[in-house]
Amino acid sequence: MRSGTPLRRLRPLRAGAVALVLSATLAACGTDRPDDSAPGGGTPSSARSAVAGADQLEACPATPSKPPVGDGLPDVSLPCLGNGPDIRLADLRGPLVVNVWAQWCGPCRDEAPYLAQLAKSGKVSMLGIDYDDPRPEIAAEFAQTEGLAYPHVVDREKAVRAALKIAGPPLTAFVDADGKVVHIHRGVLTSQQQLDQLVKDKLGVTP
């Protein structure tokens, strides 16, 4: 990893082979998701400590405090899906790829192998945001099975919704070295080539 990036990565986890049929359009999942009353609910901070498999995920590192950046990530702190401290998004600098996902989102599962492969390259920092998700234990299993070997935080209350204009997952944001969100891709990533080209065009990094 290039020096100075705020998020570290461990060795990639074993990737699973999950394939769902894509819709004709590259639409996001929208806001439909399982009912909050499903087992495993509760606030993100209380749920994460008891989530089965959380200790198998990439730990969230401590990040140095930095002033918020205009056009940067929102100034909110989110709890880690795995182990580690909360992450204040405004502290993060790039080159960084932030992927908003949920375990109930079919297109999120379709694009997961491309994100896992990008993480293996070690060329950019990566962060996942498990969004509007009432089942953290399934989210942890999904991240582990798909080999998403980078830190993930939990945003069950949709704290980043307004800032990133999220209609629903998936959504992928590209953050430059100054902390600015230089591009947001809405909807599913359809190929490794597409993701790698976005990283090259928006962040100046060749995976």
Rank of each mutant, 00 (worst) to 15 (best):
E141G: 09
D130T: 03
F142G: 02
E141Q: 15
Y131T: 03
G128Q: 06
V153Q: 07
T145M: 15
L127V: 05
D130G: 04
I138N: 03
I129A: 06
V154E: 09
S125Y: 10
K123I: 07
F142I: 13
A143K: 07
H152D: 03
G147Q: 14
G128P: 09
D130S: 11
R135M: 09
D133P: 04
F142L: 07
Q144M: 09
E146F: 12
L148F: 06
P134L: 05
V153A: 02
D155V: 04
P151F: 13
P134R: 06
V124A: 10
V153R: 10
P136H: 00
T145S: 15
S125H: 13
L127C: 06
L127N: 05
P151C: 07
P136C: 02
G128V: 09
A140H: 02
E137Q: 14
M126F: 13
V153H: 11
Y131D: 04
I138V: 14
D132P: 04
L148K: 04
A139E: 02
P151G: 02
P134S: 05
L127R: 11
D130W: 05
A143G: 00
P151E: 07
D132Y: 13
F142H: 11
A140F: 00
V154I: 12
A139I: 11
T145L: 15
D133H: 09
R135V: 11
Y131W: 15
R135T: 12
A143F: 06
P136E: 02
I138D: 07
L127S: 04
D133L: 12
I138A: 13
A140I: 04
A140G: 03
R135H: 03
Q144Y: 13
A143D: 05
V154H: 06
H152N: 06
H152C: 01
V124G: 03
K123E: 13
S125T: 08
D132T: 00
D132H: 11
Y150A: 01
Y150T: 00
S125W: 14
Y131P: 03
H152I: 05
E137A: 14
L127E: 00
M126R: 08
A140S: 07
D133I: 10
